[in-house]
Structures are given as structure tokens and as C-alpha cells.
Amino acid sequence: MAAETGTPTTLTLKSNDDELFSVAESAAILSVTIRNMVEDGCAGGVIPLDNVDGKTLASVITYMNGISAIPADEEKKKSYRDKFLSDKDFETLADMVLAANYLNMSCLMDAVSAKIAQVMEKKSVGWVRRKFGIENDYTPEEEAAVKEEHKWTFEGVETDDDN
């Protein structure tokens, strides 16, 4: 466990593409996954993180260091999170949400999920499909059900545009 005095304990994390990262234990244990490993005494050597690649892990460690340097002030932490995510491109967000989930970091998870939700807001279905690279894979029956759900039928419209 971390020494109470003297030099802070440092952990070595290994990404799934074999990059090694040093990080202060006090920052790394923001991840419940890592904290459990530390508490189980598995942190002596290198901690392998099989589901996170080096680029994403580097980014997550930046976040761990940044957020743990802020004292208990939720406003400041929130503004750090906003700033941290503001320059992340859309593809990175997917990696981040997976990493935050795997590492069990609820505060990062919340922030990334909200950011992705924001991308989806107030858009057309076609836009969301293009942005997220998703094919419309509905069966004709499902497609009809979806259409039905999105149909506005107005009462009392006297219109002559159907002929």
C-alpha cells in the first residue's frame, strides 16, 4: 500500500499494445479496477490493462493526474472534466467510454457519456447514423414500426395537398 510518508508510490500500467506508463498510485486508484488490484496486492510489478490501448491509456492518465490534483471542489472538478473532454475528437470518445467502463471510473464515465449524448441531441436519425457509422439494419416490419413511431398525424387539418 501507499507509503504515508516519503516518496509517493508509483504504479506501472501496461496497455494492450504493450506500452508502459508510470502513474502515482494516489491518482491511479480513481479507477476502482486498479484500486482493487492494489488492495489485492497485485500491484507489485506491472499492472496489465488488457482492454485499453496506449493512446487511450495515456489520455486517461492525464485525466487521473489532472483531476486528483484538484482538491474536493466539485465545481472545479467539473470544469476540469469539461475542459479535458473539449478537445477530444469523436472517435476518441468511444475509446474513452470503453476505457472508463473497464477501469470502473464513474466520474469519467459520467462525463464521457454526457458528452456523447450531447452529440446525439437535436439531430436527425440520418445524421446520427452517418456520424456513428451505423447501418440501418431494420427488417421491413421493424422499419414500419419505427416509421409509425415517428409519424405526426394532425387532427383537423383541412388540406388539399394530397390530390
Binding site: V146, K151, T153, F154, G156, E158, T159, D160
Partner: peptide, 15 residues
């Protein structure tokens, strides 16, 4: 009241 002069569909497919 939507009147015939207003170009308004009876059904709008919001998709």
C-alpha cells in the same frame, strides 16, 4: 385550424 390554403400535410414523417 389548418386550412386548405396552408400547405400542410396531414401526416408528417418526422424521420
Amino acid at each position: 385550424k389548418i386550412r386548405p390554403g396552408n400547405q400542410m400535410p396531414k401526416v408528417l414523417n418526422t424521420l
